[in-house]
């Protein structure tokens, strides 16, 4: 006999349970956790290197690196001066909350003020997965062009800050910063946009101030 079962269950329910578990840990240890997402090559790791080398004078920083393969990014972060754990997804296009939960025992979270999670480079898949982070930040880079915000609305709908990276290239490319701001406003009114260059260091102070504010809020 056939039996019909009505579930109405969220498909990501198991991921969300793990995300809640992570969030509870982060809240208990008052660790500020930021999930950094972008397309491949937008400059997430370079931004993190700069962030680590400046802010580690003030905060105890740790990084979880997500990539399909290799330990390259974690090595770069370690050289910049922070503890880094690499997750290899072996073909998986995003990090999920269970992968994060599995590596958390490698950190003493009581001793970590700020934890960055660098997601797998991809503007689609990581947007749907809650990792238990306090903030979702997208990195968009000038060479990617103005069309990325309207083309990938779901990502920019769910992030609260866009770091517009590689602005040192603005004189050579047709990127329009004001248009990017308007496009972002059209998709997500509450999202901020901070123009930065990890290379020329322009704008990095604004990003560090943003982290500082987020850290203060997280300590309350």
């Amino acid at each position: 006999m056939l039996m019909k079962v009505t579930l109405r269950t969220d498909v990501l329910t198991n991921n969300n349970k793990a995300a809640d578990y992570n969030r509870e840990l982060f809240t208990t240890t008052k660790t500020l956790v930021i999930n950094l997402m972008s397309s491949p090559g937008a400059g997430k790791t370079t931004l993190l290197e700069e962030t680590v080398s400046v802010l580690s004078r003030k905060y105890r920083i740790a990084v979880i690196e997500g990539d399909l393969a290799t330990e390259k990014d974690a090595d770069r972060i370690r050289k910049a001066g922070a503890k880094a754990v690499q997750i290899n997804t072996h073909g998986g296009c995003h990090l999920d909350a269970r992968m994060i939960a599995a590596v958390l025992p490698e950190f003493d979270l009581e001793e970590v003020d700020v934890l960055f999670i660098e997601n797998v480079g991809n503007l689609v898949c990581p947007s749907g997965y809650d990792l238990g982070q306090m903030h979702k930040v997208a990195v968009l880079s000038v060479p990617e062009g103005n069309d990325k915000i309207p083309k990938y609305p779901v990502m920019f709908m769910r992030t609260e800050l866009v770091l517009l990276n590689k602005i040192d290239l603005l004189p050579y490319l047709d990127f329009n910063v004001e248009k990017a701001k308007r496009d972002l406003e059209g998709i997500n009114l509450s999202s901020k946009l901070i123009p930065v260059s990890a290379k020329s260091k322009e704008g990095l102070l604004d990003w560090f101030n943003w982290i500082e504010e987020a850290y203060k809020t997280c300590q309350q």
């Binding site: 006999m1 056939l2 039996m3 019909k4 079962v5 009505t6 579930l7 109405r8 269950t9 969220d10 498909v11 990501l12 749907g128 709908m157 406003e185 059209g186 009114l189």
Partner: peptide
């Protein structure tokens, strides 16, 4: 004005499934 909020369209759910059991 950019004053809108999404109220529907983000769902991703298993509504139901149908199967047969041991008893069969």
């Amino acid at each position: 004005l950019p004053s809108g909020k999404i109220i529907s369209g983000e769902s991703f759910q298993i509504l139901s499934y149908e199967g047969s059991g041991d008893a069969d």
